[in-house]
Each structure stands twice: as C-alpha cells, then as structure tokens.
Simulated assay, not measured.
Amino acid sequence: MIGEVACRSARVALRGHKKRDLDEQAVSLPVPALAVEVDIMDPAALRAAARPPRQGLGRLSAVPGNEGVAEVRPFADPGAPTWQAVIDVNLTGSAHTSHTLLTDLRALSWPSPT
C-alpha cells in the first residue's frame, strides 16, 4: 500500500517499532520518505512522533495503517497474551493513531462523514 501511495507522488511518513526496517523501506520508495519509530500503544509517543512528519512533510493527506500483529494458532490454544497483543495493537493502537492524527485528517478537503 505504501508503495502505491508513493507512486502517486505523495509525501510518505512511515511509523512503527523497527527503525532499521522503516529506514530500509523509506529509501526503497520513489519519493522522499520519513521513518519514525514509535510505539502505537503510547498516545504521548504518538503525539511526539507526529511532529517530525508535520514539520518535514507538511499536512498529512492519508494515514495508512501499517501496524499489526498476526498470530496463527488454534483459537482453543491458551494463548491469552498473544490474543491480547493482537487486540491491543490492531484495534487499540489503530484507534490511538487515528485520534492523534484526527485534526490533520479533518483538515482535508474531502467531505467529512462527521
């Protein structure tokens, strides 16, 4: 998804846990990109991580969700911590990200559903 966005000449900011992986992905894109390491489970860290892209790239135009935890195991397997991590990152972390960047997204010229 990020590659497709970059091919449309969008300014790209990548966020996630693994800075080295983010840097590698950023240099592979056809446009300048910014890599920011952040824990999406930490709202204060997300607010701080939003500053460099805003300062370096300007107003955000999209927020692709590239965070996620995927664990393949039988549901009956007693892996409660794993299931909790999936819910925390995939649901709660995505909500933290959306709330942090809501002002940027509302500033877009697209019609708002709210």
Rank of each mutant, 00 (worst) to 15 (best):
P113R: 08
V69L: 10
V86I: 15
P78N: 09
S98Q: 05
A26W: 07
Q84G: 04
V89K: 04
G56K: 13
G56S: 11
D39K: 07
P111S: 08
G68F: 01
P30Y: 01
V89G: 08
K18M: 06
S94A: 15
A70E: 05
A35C: 07
V5Y: 15
A107K: 08
P53T: 04
P78A: 13
P52V: 09
A48S: 14
Q55P: 00
S94D: 02
A107D: 13
Q55L: 14
A10K: 02
V31R: 11
L101R: 02
L46D: 06
P43R: 04
G79Y: 01
R73A: 14
L60N: 03
A33M: 10
P111L: 08
A80C: 03
R54H: 12
G56M: 09
A95Q: 14
E4G: 06
G58I: 01
A26L: 12
S112Y: 04
I87K: 08
V86Y: 02
H96W: 02
P111W: 07
A85V: 00
M1Q: 08
D42E: 12
P64Q: 07
A33K: 05
R20M: 06
E71P: 01
A10Y: 07
E37T: 15
A45G: 14
D104C: 03
P74Q: 14
V36N: 13
G58N: 06
R106S: 10
P64N: 09
A33V: 09
T100H: 00
C7T: 06
L91D: 07
A10V: 08
R47M: 10
H99I: 02
A107E: 13
G56Y: 05
S94K: 06
L101Y: 11
T100M: 01
I40M: 12
R51P: 01
N66M: 13
S112F: 04
A95H: 05
R106E: 13
L105Y: 01
A95T: 09
G65P: 01
L34Q: 12
Q55F: 05
R8V: 07
E71K: 06
L22R: 02
V63H: 01
T114G: 03
T82N: 02
P64D: 09
L14R: 05
P52T: 14
A44R: 05
I87D: 06
E4F: 07
E37C: 14
G68N: 10
T92I: 15
A70F: 12
E4S: 14
I40N: 00
P113S: 13
I2F: 10
L102W: 09
P52W: 08
L60C: 03
L108D: 04
A50K: 00
P78H: 10
L102G: 03
G16R: 02
W83Q: 04
V12M: 11
V89A: 09
V72K: 08
K18A: 13
A33L: 02
D23P: 04
V31G: 11
E4M: 08
A13P: 03
T97M: 12
W110P: 00
E37V: 09
A70N: 09
L102Y: 12
A6S: 09
R54K: 11
L60V: 05
L105I: 08
P30I: 11
G79Q: 04
I40R: 07
R20W: 09
E4D: 14
D23T: 13
A44S: 12
E24D: 13
L91C: 12
R59D: 01
L14C: 07
E71R: 03
R15V: 15
A45D: 12
G65A: 02
I87L: 08
L101S: 02
L91E: 04
A107G: 12
